Simulated assay, not measured.
Amino acid sequence: MKKLLLLVCILYGIVPQTQAQTGTYKGIGTIVFEAGAPLSLIKGTSESANGLIDLETGKFRFDVPITSFRFLNSLMQERFNDKYMQSSRYQKATFVGRIIDKGPISAKGEAKVTATGTLTIHGVAKKRTITGTLVQSGNTWQLLTDFPVKLADHHIQAPKLSSGYGASTMNVSLKMPLSPTTPDPQQIAAAKKLSIK
C-alpha cells in the first residue's frame, strides 16, 4: 500500500513537469497591415491571429481569419473582403514552418529569430524567410515581427490609393503574446490510471 501511495505521489509530480517540458506555446495576437503614404493610407487590423509554436523543435503555425480585419472606412472593409481578398473563398492566411535560427537571449530578455516556411494568402503559397524578435517575461514570450508582402506574389489586385497609384506592397506587423500550453486533464488522468496499473 505504501508503494502504491508513493507511486501516485511521484506520478502527480512528474506528469505536469513532463507536459511543461514540451516547450509548446500558443497565443492570440494582433496583425496590422498598411500601404501607401500617410495621406492615402490603407490600414487593416485584426486581433484574431492564432499562433502555435514549439520552441524545442522550432515548428510553428500562425493563421488569421481574413474577415477579422477591421478598417476605419466600412467601404474599404467591404472591398477588401469582396474584391481584393475574396474572403468567402479564401478564409484564412497562414504561415507554417520552422525557426531555423534563434539568437542568444539578451539582458533585456530578447532573442532574434529567423523563420522559414510557407506563407499562404489568397490561396497562393509562397516560401518565405522572415525575421522577428522573441521577448521573454517569466515563463511567457511575446513575438514581434514586421515584414513586407508583395500583392502580386499572391495574385491580389493592387488597391488604388487616393493619389491614383496602386499599392503594390503591404507592410505587415505582428504582435503576439505566447503562453505555455495547458496540459490536457484527460491525458493526465489517463496517464495516471495507466501507470498505477
Rank of each mutant, 00 (worst) to 15 (best):
I28E: 03
A111D: 07
Y12Q: 14
H122R: 02
A107G: 07
K102R: 11
M76S: 07
G109C: 04
S137W: 03
G27M: 02
A190I: 11
D101M: 03
S179P: 01
Y90T: 05
R98F: 12
Q157N: 12
V149K: 07
L144M: 08
R61L: 14
C9D: 03
L55R: 01
T57M: 08
F95A: 06
T140R: 11
A189K: 14
Q17T: 09
G132C: 05
L7E: 04
A167V: 05
F71Y: 03
A167E: 04
L4F: 13
Q142S: 12
E47L: 05
A152L: 10
L178I: 05
G23H: 14
Y25Q: 02
F71I: 02
P148H: 03
T116I: 05
M170E: 02
Q91M: 13
F147L: 09
N171W: 10
D63L: 13
I188L: 02
K3S: 10
T57F: 05
S163I: 10
N81A: 13
K102W: 02
G103W: 03
G27W: 00
E78W: 14
L143A: 12
T131P: 00
I99E: 06
I156N: 05
T94E: 15
K192N: 08
V8A: 15
S87E: 08
T129M: 03
Y90S: 06
P65Y: 04
A115W: 01
K112E: 15
H122M: 02
S48G: 06
K175E: 03
I196A: 07
V96W: 06
A35D: 08
T133G: 05
G36A: 13
A158M: 11
I100L: 13
K3H: 12
R79L: 12
T181C: 07
L143Y: 06
A111P: 03
G58C: 11
D101K: 06
L52W: 08
I10R: 04
L75P: 09
Q91N: 13
K102D: 00
S46E: 13
R70W: 04
P65A: 05
F147K: 04
L7F: 04
C9S: 14
I188K: 00
L134I: 10
Y90C: 04
